[in-house]
Amino acid sequence: MSPSALYRTVARAEAITWTLLIIAMVLKYAVKVGDWPVSIAGFVHGFVFLTYIATSVLVGMNQRWSKRLILGAAATSVIPYLTVPFDRWLERRGKLVGSWRTQASEHPADQRWTDSTMRWLVARPVLSSIALFVLIVAVFSTMLVMGPPGGRS
């Protein structure tokens, strides 16, 4: 899967889980079916939210985005549905063109430890997927222990 395809897939998944969360909130507050829809949709959305942030960082590093652009990409996940138009914006500006960089080039950035680590990760997609999954689960589990925004009722 290319960086563009991965980014687009996760960006759309993030937008879909926003929809699920919004529907769940309508069911909870307007239809009064209880907390369970928000618990389920919130769990799924939270996991995809963290996955989108990790994907933004990985793809951004691979594509040599500026730190500001990587931060902006990650921030789009906070506003419902913004990940999809941002993906289109990146596409129009050629920010998603190219394949995964697994070999160092003459580019000065390729000499940094962050870029060599990124190349190592993308050269081992199965291992990297497992490692990123474990990292996301660890962050997600920590957030679940801390509780929801605004505290527990």
Score class of each variant (00 low, 15 high):
3 P>I: 01
5 A>Y: 00
5 A>L: 02
6 L>E: 00
6 L>N: 00
7 Y>R: 03
8 R>H: 06
8 R>A: 10
9 T>L: 02
10 V>K: 01
11 A>Q: 01
13 A>Y: 03
13 A>W: 11
15 A>K: 00
16 I>F: 13
18 W>D: 05
21 L>C: 08
24 A>Q: 03
24 A>K: 11
26 V>M: 10
27 L>R: 12
28 K>S: 12
30 A>L: 12
31 V>F: 13
32 K>C: 06
33 V>S: 12
34 G>H: 14
35 D>G: 12
36 W>N: 14
37 P>T: 08
38 V>E: 09
39 S>C: 05
40 I>D: 09
40 I>C: 08
48 V>N: 04
50 L>Q: 06
52 Y>F: 15
53 I>Y: 01
54 A>R: 04
55 T>H: 06
57 V>E: 03
61 M>N: 05
62 N>R: 00
63 Q>G: 00
63 Q>D: 02
64 R>I: 08
67 K>Y: 10
67 K>E: 15
68 R>E: 11
68 R>Y: 03
68 R>S: 11
72 G>V: 04
72 G>E: 09
74 A>T: 01
74 A>C: 10
75 A>Y: 08
78 V>M: 05
78 V>H: 08
80 P>V: 14
81 Y>F: 15
85 P>G: 11
87 D>C: 15
88 R>K: 10
89 W>T: 10
89 W>G: 11
90 L>S: 00
93 R>M: 06
93 R>P: 03
94 G>T: 11
95 K>Y: 07
95 K>T: 04
100 W>R: 05
101 R>T: 03
101 R>G: 00
102 T>R: 07
106 E>F: 08
106 E>V: 08
107 H>T: 04
108 P>L: 09
108 P>E: 12
112 R>E: 11
113 W>A: 15
116 S>M: 06
118 M>L: 14
118 M>H: 06
121 L>G: 04
124 R>M: 07
124 R>K: 11
125 P>M: 13
126 V>P: 06
127 L>W: 15
128 S>M: 12
129 S>L: 06
130 I>Y: 10
131 A>Q: 15
133 F>T: 15
133 F>Q: 01
133 F>E: 01
135 L>M: 10
136 I>T: 12
137 V>P: 07
137 V>E: 12
137 V>G: 06
138 A>S: 15
141 S>F: 09
142 T>Q: 12
143 M>K: 07
144 L>W: 09
146 M>Q: 14
146 M>E: 12
147 G>L: 05
147 G>D: 04
148 P>K: 14
148 P>C: 09
149 P>M: 12
149 P>C: 05
150 G>N: 07
150 G>Q: 07
150 G>A: 06
151 G>M: 05
151 G>R: 09
